[in-house]
């Protein structure tokens, strides 16, 4: 059995995967990216490299991916549909593959209104669903997005997508996930889970339709530094659900950061024990990468699988 990436190998062999996220910097030095990669190298199977998240200009996800790969971590290159048309997307993906990237995560991308270039134009030549499908066709049928055939060396990416169980309309979220799986998404990372009840309802519907058998779902976990962060996500970010009880718990904590870590650990333990159909966790410690090793160790997910070949 050959695998497209290490992440696929771990997931397809039935092991519980751990991915994390590294946000590239708003400057041209790789120092911070490499520092975070070195911090995470033994504790995760792969890390997402965000693609100008919240529409703020940052180092390219592919360029940052090269640094991360160099530090020994397998990157998951995020590619949004916001900034590039299908020509630029394919060009970047060919380059990414040539540089050793093997996982791509397809997303719509945050609207540019939120970033530091709100007067820019957005592209959305293709949407995330189409990007998944076109990438799968590129690999499986050796075709460019236009249908033209590759003569040689078509990229063979392990294709991921995202799902947000907390956005609306809730009933359609499982349908849309199923569409993404039909389009070719082999792994799914969810939006940060704070409302566990809603996530469990979502997973119940996923299991009823057997979607968890056709893709690997990784639950998104975000440790929060304090109640203000929770409140911000609750009120300031569309598509997030943060229960008041979590805000209150962090507010009442003597050491809010410690409490945030404890919450994340509890969530992971709960999901592993109680929520069937989840095949891994995606820990998004936003600007707080240093807590990931502790979370991984204390949830019994350490050490991570190693492969000799």
């Amino acid at each position: 059995m050959s695998y497209l990436s290490k992440l696929q190998r771990i997931l397809d062999s039935g092991q519980f995967a751990v991915t994390a996220e590294i946000g590239p910097p708003k400057h041209a030095s790789a120092h911070g990216v490499r520092h975070h990669a070195e911090m995470l190298v033994n504790h995760v199977d792969a890390t997402n490299i965000t693609d100008c998240q919240t529409a703020i200009v940052r180092m390219s996800s592919i360029a940052a991916g090269v640094h991360i790969l160099d530090c020994g971590i397998e990157p998951i290159v995020q590619m949004t549909c916001r900034d590039r048309n299908r020509i630029a997307m394919q060009s970047d993906l060919l380059g990414a593959y040539s540089l050793g990237m093997r996982n791509v995560l397809c997303l719509s991308g945050d609207h540019q209104k939120f970033g530091n270039h709100p007067s820019s134009k957005n592209v959305y030549d293709v949407d995330s669903m189409q990007l998944i499908q076109l990438l799968a066709r590129m690999r499986d049928e050796k075709k460019f997005f236009s249908g033209e055939e590759f003569k040689d060396h078509e990229p063979k990416f392990y294709i991921g997508a995202v799902a947000n169980p907390f956005a609306d309309p809730f009933e359609f979220r499982v349908d849309r996930l199923e569409k993404k799986v039909e389009a070719g998404a082999q792994f799914i990372q969810t939006q940060c889970i704070f409302d566990m009840e809603r996530f469990e309802r979502f997973m119940e519907m996923v299991r009823e339709r057997g979607i968890d058998q056709r893709t690997h779902i990784l639950a998104g976990i975000t440790p929060l530094k304090g109640w203000r962060a929770a409140k911000y996500l609750q009120t300031g970010v569309s598509g997030m659900l943060v229960p008041d009880s979590l805000v209150e718990r962090l507010k009442g904590a003597q050491d809010p950061k410690r409490e945030g870590i404890e919450v994340a650990i509890e969530q992971i333990n709960y999901i592993r024990e109680k929520v069937k159909g989840v095949h891994g966790v995606h820990v998004m410690a936003i600007a707080w990468e240093e807590v990931v090793p502790e979370i991984v160790e204390r949830t019994g997910l350490f050490p991570r699988p190693k492969f000799e070949d």
Partner: peptide
């Protein structure tokens, strides 16, 4: 749709509104 998505809605749709503003209806909702 603020992103002209043909297979929506994206993950920013909540309470019937678009992620860009509470004054904008989510077309996909």
């Amino acid at each position: 749709c603020s992103k002209s998505i043909l297979n929506g809605p994206c993950g920013g749709s909540q309470y019937g509104k678009c992620e860009i503003s509470k004054d904008v209806d989510c077309a996909w909702q």
